[in-house]
């Protein structure tokens, strides 16, 4: 196919890593719009670091609280830095629930949810964006409308359905719906797939490629940044989901981390082990942070739109 032989055009500065240094610099200037003086880049960097620190505060606060002793938590005003490191809070947090079993359950649900959701949403979004058929945009409005269905009213009918299927206390109610696309992700992907020039698709069709092949071999790699967003959102959604596991998973063998965290917060006399709760929370979100750090680079691989020139 002609498409795979085109030379990728520079999409963003990071793609230039392989190219020689002077050119990299030039592209950087182009994106920022002007020649940068050393001090303007220093100021930008300081602003960036400041903004990042602001957004890191919640995590810092969680970690600091997780390391404090119960008595230190009663200090007024709160101490910004733990006086002593109580690493045992992390150990206690892990021991307070079947952490590793919950971890495994959550991981399985998340991985399957992400795969199903990326695949199904991509196929459907392709149908709404890359194929042209009569009534397409009207039908798409229905997709948008379904974004506005309030979740509490779906809880009971859906539970009735899954209970009749015998799916309570299994992961199926949390995983299977991902096979059927979701309005949010279809909408998201459609917005990006619509930006792919029709000419490119039509050219491939003239080459007698099947739609299925065009979808997976041409469009899928092109839409990688948006697909990464879908993957990240569905991973975070599945990992942190509380309401679903709450009503569908009643058996400790199948429960997830979010249930474990919530159970932590419910004690008699409101005497929450705050430091251990924070330690558990840090452990729960740590894999997500790592995951994001690893996968954010797919935003770098700008799509090779220019390639069809």
């Amino acid at each position: 196919m002609t498409l795979t032989t085109t030379t990728p055009q520079p999409r963003g500065p990071e793609d230039e890593a392989a190219l020689d240094a002077p050119k990299r610099e030039e592209v950087g200037r182009a994106r920022d719009g002007s020649r940068q003086k050393w001090y303007s880049s220093a100021i930008a960097r300081i602003l960036m670091i400041g903004l990042s620190l602001l957004f890191l505060l919640p995590l810092y606060w969680m970690i600091a609280s997780a390391l404090k002793s119960g008595q230190e938590l009663s200090h007024y005003p709160p101490t910004w830095f733990p006086q002593e490191f109580h690493w045992e809070n992390f150990v206690n947090a892990v021991n307070a629930m079947p952490f590793w079993s919950f971890f495994r359950n959550t991981a399985v649900i998340t991985v399957l949810s992400v795969i199903f959701s990326v695949v199904s949403n991509f196929i459907v979004a392709y149908g709404f964006a890359c194929l042209e058929w009569k009534g397409r945009d009207r039908v798409f409005y229905i997709v948008l409308a379904t974004l506005f269905i309030p979740f509490p009213v779906t809880l009971i009918p859906m539970f009735d359905l899954y209970a009749n299927l015998g799916w309570v206390n299994t992961w199926l109610p949390l995983i299977v719906p991902n096979l059927f696309a979701s309005a949010f992700f279809v909408f998201l992907l459609r917005q990006f797939l619509l930006q792919i020039p029709k000419d490119m698709l039509d050219a491939a069709r003239l080459d007698a490629a099947s739609e299925w092949a065009i979808a997976w071999r041409l469009v899928f790699p092109t839409a990688l940044p948006a697909l990464t967003a879908v993957g990240i959102f569905s991973a975070v959604g599945a990992w942190n989901d509380f309401m679903g596991p709450l009503i569908y998973l009643q058996d400790v063998n199948v429960q997830t981390l979010s249930i474990g965290l919530q159970a932590f917060r419910q004690t008699n006399q409101q005497d929450i082990q705050f430091n251990e709760l924070m330690a558990a929370s840090v452990l729960v979100i740590a894999p997500l942070i790592i995951l994001f750090f690893v996968f954010q680079r797919y935003f770098l691989k700008g799509i090779t739109l220019g390639g069809f020139k």
Binding site: E14, L56, L59, I285
Partner: peptide, 26 residues
Amino acid sequence: NVREVAWYRTALYIPSLVPAFALSFI
């Protein structure tokens, strides 16, 4: 367009990963 952009991205995204109850504490 900076080398350490991955760190910025992660830092700015982390609050979206934190459960709402933990965010409310800070």
